[in-house]
């Protein structure tokens, strides 16, 4: 891996960590503990477009693992993990569809992220009850996905990296 990629990746990972910490400060959108807005996905999306899937994956792993360690909360791990990975998977898949802009990929990623979080909640609580929160969360995903996509499109256009 080129040095530039490595350092870019490191910076992005740090950024993702910071974002994931900040988003933890917002009140949860639904009364399920552990559900987060998904701001850190901006980084995943951006990394996907500029560094490629393997790097984006590495950044995601770092963010999830270190994030859980810093939060001192092991149960946060499963939420971040399932949310982040689901988003990653969806975004990688959607990118293949060349006609789709960053907005489409981002909305798909956000939707998958929320599905992953609900799945995590279901696993932690051992019940199917959290599934009832999916409809509002999916609608929210459209908006948060649009926002993430917007931020990313700005960054990509400026070719900051």
């Amino acid at each position: 891996m080129k040095t530039k990629q490595l350092t870019t990746g490191a910076i992005l990972a740090a950024l993702a960590l910071a974002l994931s910490y900040v988003e933890g400060m917002f009140p949860p959108p639904v009364p399920l503990p552990g559900v987060k807005l998904g701001l850190a996905n901006i980084v995943t999306l951006f990394a996907l477009y500029t560094l490629g899937a393997p790097s984006a994956l590495a950044i995601l792993l770092v963010r999830v693992l270190l994030g859980a360690m810093f939060a001192g909360n092991a149960s946060a791990l499963i939420f971040s993990l399932l949310g982040g990975f689901s988003a990653m998977l969806a975004m990688v898949a959607l990118r293949r569809w060349e006609k789709l802009s960053v907005y489409g990929v981002s909305v798909g990623g956000a939707a998958a992220h929320n599905c992953g979080q609900v799945a995590a909640a279901m696993l932690t609580l051992g019940s199917a009850a959290p599934a009832a929160y999916l409809p509002p969360l999916l609608v929210a995903a459209v908006f948060s996905g649009a926002l993430t996509g917007f931020v990313c499109s700005l960054l990509l256009r400026r070719k900051v990296f």
Partner: peptide
């Protein structure tokens, strides 16, 4: 992506999610 502007395919994704 072709360009950073939302297009009708993105709208399709949104529709599917909704």
């Amino acid at each position: 992506s072709p360009d950073g502007k939302p297009n009708k395919y993105d709208a399709l994704v949104v529709l599917v999610v909704l």
